[in-house]
Design a protein around this nucleic acid. Structure first.
Lengths: 210, 210, 210, 210
DNA sequence: GATGAATGAGATTTCATTCAT
DNA sequence: GATGAATGAAATCTCATTCAT
């Protein structure tokens, strides 16, 4: 009933995604974002994706290997962009609190500007499956965050009561629930509008209370 | 391509779940907890559930209407228990901060003691779908929390910078991510162990900084 | 590349064909006869068959297991009819030569009256595959023939130079090629028209030359 | 559903097979004989053939046009050899019966020595398709046979009850079924061993009974 | 000539869901 | 309540064939 993880097994024989024509890849991933953000995973047919991207079903299978892998690979590419954007924005900010605020803001802003990614995360991704695929603690994103947090703890600016991972979970939790709440309440009142208040709350939570 | 939401359509003609023999219902819901916590939604076959509960497929369809409804109904019953337990534990605690701490602790403790519920939430539930079914902002649970938060704001103990819902999201986010992290890290170090530190952080975030 | 014989493996779990509603079975097998007789095996899609028989694809898979098995099973049913008819016609004929002549005639007549079966044998069946499925030396048919031949050898009417199987092959060969030739030449001049001349030739070949 | 006969359509633009390097052609046709004799037509992939012959897929398509045409072309080349061999062996035999016996024997001997051709005929060729491609009544082979038979009828040695084609079918049938039986029974007892007995039977059948 | 990639088609499997008994 | 069977849909895979380089 319970097939072995095909994603991994297949991964070994997959042609490198890099070999896929970038324009085609773009079309495929846009189709993924469009369709999976509107309908749940199991209500999406890969033919829709194929047609939406103007490629054959086989091309998708060839480069992505499975429906799940297609989705996760697309999400991954998006989060990569978030990570890059974060690094970019951190440049030239000196004050630690401001660096962290920026980090927080970039995350909220990203989901605000890329609601399809958020919708997919909410409508088509099982946390656990995604996590196993490596997406949940998305490496690049994770490292940016962890680096910033480590910096704060090293400075003694952040609380030492809990470890960095817990700090990260605390922040992630607030971000996650907040952007989700935005969707749930019909996408009025964009999350960045509350960014500062929320950040100040967060800051009180994690700053070293000295 | 896109099947109509059978859950809703079917819901209208469902015999009341209450008419289902309680012992049978118990067996069904235990099977749901067992199986959906081990395998993703779309990897679970309803026959497994039926066999696991020693009932016929038709019984499930008759009382629950669809796979999705079966799962959500079961989750609902569990969260009902959480809400009840919370009310129960709040009795006889006077100090506001302690009431809130208790609330927080009961939630962590619930997931720690009912890991199958947590696993299901992480492995078989799309936030969005669940939300639409009414589970995400689960009424009974929601009211307990909101009542406690409203109380705090009325007292001036909690910050007035954001509304109650936002406070709730903040807390929910921290709980959610923390219990998830526990699963992700292999279920060592139970979430209640950090309950107090985390709560103090939370408290600093949401208390009125006066 | 080279999958194991799925027919056999699957055979074990197949519900008995006898459990299939006879009317449905009839519709399926008529569709098989219609379509496989017009187009080669690999040009036939099972959906055509399903649609032609007004059943779902799954019903076909459930009872027959595979495309190949479906075809062979249908052919088998037809040859069963030939065997039955042969037994029927043999009744009440005393003279040995006449019995054999009848046998020969019934075979030619069968293909003449069931050209779809013949077409399928010529257009969609690989001798070897069919043989492995047990169809080539179709048991019931084979036994009728062999019994008649054994009878002739026992009487000393037939030649003892070769064994019964070889005699059978000799006769089969003549029948086969003759009905095939009829199709090839556009189905004019039905094979039974030459039945007697051919049979006399055959008889000279296999009768004991004493 | 029903693809157009690609063989014919393509045939028109095919470069002459004669332009294909003979060594390459030899390698291709050996691969065809090897592989199609082991596996059924639709279980053979052209890449296997290409790899087995150390040529590119395109070379095959360029010179042969389609999978079917490749197979039939290879068979044709083999039957050409049989026809040539037959002519060769007929030389210097005077007695008519001996000429015919030789013809019969050469055919049996050919399949005995070239079992791959026989296997292919049994495992990968639909009579009807092959016939349409011109292979079944393979011209060169056909003419040798027909010439010998015509000779016999002209002499009054052969029966005049049926026409030459029917005589030919009679003989073909016996040959075909006999070599097939050899394969079916596991390739013991080579068909030539029975050549004489069978031929005498055949002879009684077709000789003018005067 | 060769190589690589893309395509369309269809076989096969697994389910949720529905129906009839 | 249960049991058995049928259905529609879609995932996945394998290929012949075609195209572009």
């Amino acid at each position: 009933m319970n097939r072995p993880e095909p994603a991994h097994a297949a991964a070994l024989r997959l042609p490198d995604l890099a070999q896929l024509d970038p324009a085609t890849r773009e079309r495929i991933e846009q189709a993924v974002l469009d369709i999976f953000s509107q309908r749940e995973f199991h209500r999406v047919g890969l033919i829709e994706i194929a047609r939406g991207a103007n490629v054959s079903l086989q091309t998708i299978y060839k480069y992505y290997g499975s429906k799940e892998a297609l989705l996760f690979s697309t999400l991954d590419a998006q989060l990569q962009r978030l990570a890059a954007r974060m690094l970019d924005h951190l440049q030239g900010i000196e004050a630690y609190k401001e660096r962290l605020r920026k980090t927080f803001w970039v995350a909220l802003d990203f989901f605000e500007k890329n609601p399809r990614v958020l919708q997919i995360l909410m409508s088509s991704v099982y946390i656990n499956t995604w996590r196993r695929s490596g997406g949940y603690e998305h490496r690049p994103l994770f490292s940016v965050f962890i680096r910033v947090l480590a910096e704060g703890r090293a400075n003694g600016v952040l609380t030492a009561e809990v470890d960095e991972k817990t700090l990260l979970d605390f922040i992630y939790g607030v971000i996650q629930r907040n952007v989700q709440a935005w969707v749930v309440r019909g996408m009025k009142d964009p999350p960045t509008r509350q960014a500062n208040v929320l950040f100040e709350m967060l800051w009180r939570a994690i700053a070293n209370p000295v």
